[in-house]
């Protein structure tokens, strides 16, 4: 990858990676650190990574760096945890985004990550599986469980809309 390609990847993907990480860990400074770490890794490996694979490489590196940081900070004990009932929203609906954000934050980390990769970046099951080191079936299951939990949390839609 040339310097031009590298800088192009900064323009194209750094915002997306930052958003993805920030949504997951809710800490701007750490999210920025992770983005910088990831691009530093990319620069070191720039000879091995072609431009058409760079997005996948960046998100994969960002995801794993984030997991390492989370484990280090002991924010959550088990990232692979699933099946947790996130409950349902019992307040009054003022802002759908607010409710969705809250719902998303209640999801287990892995479910949140795969849903964000799917919705934010439009990755296929296979690509998400590569990024997260899961099987395609696991990705499908996590997405299914995550959406089901989010839908349950939203609860009574008629009040919202």
């Amino acid at each position: 990858m040339t310097v031009e390609d590298y800088n192009k990847s900064v323009n194209l993907y750094s915002d997306g990676i930052y958003r993805f990480i920030l949504k997951n860990i809710k800490n701007q400074d750490e999210a920025k650190d992770i983005v910088q770490d990831v691009y530093e890794k990319l620069w070191v490996k720039s000879g091995d990574v072609s431009f058409d694979k760079v997005k996948s490489y960046l998100f994969s590196a960002a995801y794993h760096t984030m997991i390492d940081k989370i484990r280090k900070n002991k924010r959550i004990t088990n990232i692979s945890e699933y099946g947790e009932d996130i409950g349902f929203y019992s307040g009054t609906y003022n802002d759908l985004n607010e409710v969705l954000t809250e719902a998303l934050d209640r999801l287990p980390g892995i479910q949140k990550s795969v849903i964000l990769l799917r919705d934010y970046e439009g990755y296929s099951y296979k690509e998400i599986a590569e990024i997260t080191n899961l099987s395609e079936s696991q990705v499908k299951v996590y997405i299914y469980r995550g959406r089901l939990a989010l839908k349950k949390y939203i609860g009574r839609l008629e009040v919202l809309v």
Partner: peptide, 30 residues
């Protein structure tokens, strides 16, 4: 209506969130 609830679970990226330190990670070109 039940299905519509599912449609709200799809996350929309907040485009206002941007990475402001791009200059720090860019590399100088010859």
């Amino acid at each position: 209506n039940e299905y519509k609830k599912y449609t709200y679970t799809v996350q929309r990226p907040d485009k206002s969130i941007v990475f402001n330190n791009k200059e720090l990670i860019r590399r100088k070109q010859n």
